[in-house]
Amino acid sequence: MTHTSSSQGQAFAARRPVLGALRRLAFAAAAFGAALGQAFAEPALDKTEIRYQGWAGQVSFHELAEDLGYLAPLKLKYVGNTISGPQDIQSVATGDVDIGGAFYGAVIKLIAAKAPVKAVIGNYGSDDNTWQGFFVKDDSPIRGPRDLIGKKVAVNTLGAHLEFVLREYLTRGGLTAEEIRQVTLVVVPPVTGEQALRQGQVEVTTLAGVLRDKALERGGIRKLFSDIELFGHFTGGPYVLHTKFIRDNPAAARKLVEGIARAIEWERTTPPSEVRARFEKIIAARKRNEDASAIKYWNSTGIADPGGVITDQQLQVWIDWLVKDGTLKAGQLKAADLYTNEFNPYAAETSAKTTGAAK
């Protein structure tokens, strides 16, 4: 019995170095695996909550991104509805919200006024399915730009997309600055724009989406011109972030922009019927007591470039316009300084295509 125990002890002693080596190897493998996992894991977020303003009856790209699971572990915090793009980006500049979107012209003017914001990804645009039109009554004598002198035009807000498009139309029509000032802009909520036109409160109104389609179905109005007739398919404006937000929260900024970019591509590549169904579900779940009937008329994002990538050209057309208008001095702003694509995963792809096309 003693002999057997002695033999077993000797055998175990002989195996001890091997077992020790195996343990050390296992520990090393585990440590390597943990290090490898950390290397490929997403960096810890420096901010986990994003404050934003919503739009009644609409679903923003960040709201869609959250619903699709593209933002996690980031969470959105709704702080109320905005009344316009300029108001939305002004709220970013003052630090009341973290993200906001508006027309490029409004963003450029805000940055020119020394507001610390930067464009990070496309927000909306116009194409054959999604566009803004200027309409008159069928029997209106208005047929061209010069006919608008002394007339009233309904727009949703001042200093944004519709005002710039109208002024470009008038400028191309040969009107002088003094003549353009004689065209009166009247702020009218989009839902009452058709009524304002039919009742003679304005001579021209702006309509888009469901409001445009329903008005045309009722008849008695005709299109004077549209934004895509002037500019083609284009991304009309970006989302902006505060420069301090970008500096202090680079990981959160990247996660937010990546999520929005993926949401844009989801909308661009998913059948419209599925997109509309998703929007209706999101609106119902957020319980804001809003009318979602316009969603059934949604057709496209209107955004020109994959993932909402921003280009110099998108901004330059409006910088040039503001210089021509006298709002900016020549050389005052450089397009490349007003935005960044560093957080957009589609930027490299777009850059490669642009470079290839230029060769």
Rank of each mutant, 00 (worst) to 15 (best):
K244D: 14
G69P: 15
V186R: 09
E274T: 04
G95M: 01
I319T: 09
A277D: 09
W55Q: 10
K47G: 06
T184W: 13
N156M: 15
H3P: 08
A35S: 14
I246C: 14
H3E: 11
Q38H: 07
P238T: 03
L64T: 06
L148Q: 02
L36N: 06
R51W: 13
G54T: 01
R247S: 15
A106M: 00
K296Q: 08
E194H: 08
F225H: 09
G20C: 00
G150H: 14
L45Y: 00
F32E: 06
T94I: 09
I121A: 01
V317I: 12
V204I: 14
S226R: 08
Y346I: 09
G209P: 11
R143S: 08
I319P: 07
V210Y: 12
L64E: 01
R167A: 07
I89W: 06
F40S: 05
F279P: 10
L256I: 00
L338Q: 11
G9I: 09
V186S: 00
V155T: 11
F27S: 09
A13E: 11
S84P: 10
K296S: 13
G200N: 02
K75G: 08
L197S: 10
G236D: 03
Q201D: 15
E258C: 10
A102V: 02
R268I: 03
D46N: 13
